[in-house]
């Protein structure tokens, strides 16, 4: 089950929790999104993530389900934080586990790319010169 949460998460614990649920696991591939300190040539102080309650959770569940159908993976997990997040903090974690590595790499990349296109979450950047909604996909 995906999670949308304000609090931070422990990457190692999340990976171990997922892999320990399935003894056929031979590979765990993860993507971690982190707040960087610059964007478009400006210094970034923090980000504020807004989401559409109800729809974001539903679409994330559909994303995990589609990933399980599309790729030969054993399990997957998406965690996305909401609210204000400062530089160097975690934003999003995606994990795919499988018997062999290749499919887990593909599933993980597909999930983060699809999340960026389909999940109703918006990022506001707070830079030294102002605050802006991010409306493109770098």
């Amino acid at each position: 089950m995906p999670r949308l949460q304000r609090e931070n998460f422990d990457v190692g614990k999340e990976i171990c929790a997922l892999t320990s649920k399935n003894q056929r696991t031979g590979a765990a591939v993860s993507f971690l999104g982190v707040v960087r300190d610059f964007s478009r040539g400006e210094d970034i102080e923090k980000l504020d993530f807004e989401h559409y309650p109800g729809m974001a959770e539903k679409q994330l569940e559909m994303l995990e389900t589609k990933a399980m159908e599309k790729f030969d993976i054993l399990d997957c997990l998406i965690i996305h934080r909401t609210g204000v997040i400062t530089v160097n903090e975690n934003i999003v974690l995606i994990i795919a586990i499988s018997m062999h590595r290749r499919v887990a790499f593909r599933a993980c990349e597909w999930m983060i790319n699809t999340l960026k296109k389909n999940i109703p979450i918006w990022k506001k950047e707070f830079s030294t010169t102002g605050k802006y909604w991010v409306e493109d996909h770098p």
Partner: peptide, 25 residues
Amino acid sequence: HNHVKSDYLLKDGDEVAVLPPLSGG
């Protein structure tokens, strides 16, 4: 809570949302 096109026909009681370009992740 489902993505639709602008030609989607509405019915009474629907919840419609306008979603600017997404930027999660």
